[in-house]
C-alpha cells in the first residue's frame, strides 16, 4: 500500500489530498466487496473447457486466470452477480447460497 490510509477514519480536513484526489492507482482493491454476495459461484474443473468467457464477462475482474487458464474466483471482491454462470457455455459454473458456506473457510 503506497498510500497509507489505515487510519483514514480519523483524518481531519488537513490530512486529505487537496481536491479529494486519490494518489494511488488501483487502490479500489482495498475495498472488499465480497460481503455483498448472497450466492457464490463454483466451477467444475472437469466440465470447464477453459474458453475464458467467465474471465472476460466478469464485471469485477474477480475470475483469476493464470497462464491463460481459469484457476479460481477472487471471493474478496466477487459480488455474486452470477454473470459467469449465465455466460458459461458448458454450465461448468453454478451458483450456491452463501448460507451453505457459513463457518467454512473459502
Amino acid at each position: 500500500m503506497k498510500w497509507d490510509i489505515s487510519d483514514i477514519k480519523n483524518w481531519g480536513p488537513d490530512r486529505h489530498e487537496p481536491g479529494a484526489l486519490i494518489p494511488e492507482a488501483g487502490n479500489a482493491k482495498y475495498y472488499k466487496t465480497g460481503g455483498w454476495r448472497t450466492e457464490r459461484p463454483l466451477r467444475d474443473d472437469e466440465t470447464c473447457t477453459q474458453c475464458l468467457f467467465c474471465y472476460f464477462f466478469c464485471p469485477d475482474a474477480s475470475v483469476i486466470a493464470e497462464g491463460q487458464k481459469v484457476v479460481d474466483f477472487d471471493y474478496d471482491h466477487c459480488k455474486g452477480c452470477g454473470i459467469c454462470a449465465v455466460e458459461c457455455p458448458v454450465d461448468a459454473i453454478t451458483m450456491h447460497p452463501e448460507s451453505e458456506f457459513r463457518g467454512k473457510s473459502e
Binding site: 481536491g19 479529494a20 484526489l21 486519490i22 494518489p23 494511488e24 492507482a25
Partner: peptide, 8 residues
C-alpha cells in the same frame, strides 16, 4: 509514473 484518481 504517478497515477491518480480525480473526482471520486
Amino acid at each position: 509514473n504517478d497515477p491518480i484518481t480525480v473526482g471520486p
